[in-house]
Amino acid sequence: MSNDAKERKAAMLKVQQLSFALVEAGLYLDSHPTCEKGIAYFKKHKAELDKARAEYEKKFGPLKMENALGADDKKWQWVCEPFPWVSEYERSEG
């Protein structure tokens, strides 16, 4: 795997881990909406996720369609990177 691919994979893993923390905490908060520990956990990870997502999108392309065009983009960036069912193996086949 190239260095770029390794870096992308690591950045993606960070988004996946932090987003998972929010999914898990969110389900818990649905049934425990006043739990102080749960609320603090959610807030902390939400701030980290926003940062990780912005870093990923800046370097490796949009995760959400609404973020697909930066100020200088001349091409629709949503179609410039593979969709997520494409494995690292298939990506490296080019």
Partner: peptide, 12 residues
């Protein structure tokens, strides 16, 4: 809203 990633990595 679609997010262009899997919830957990799949690389087979």
């Amino acid at each position: 809203n679609y997010e262009k990633r899997l919830q957990y990595p799949v690389n087979i």
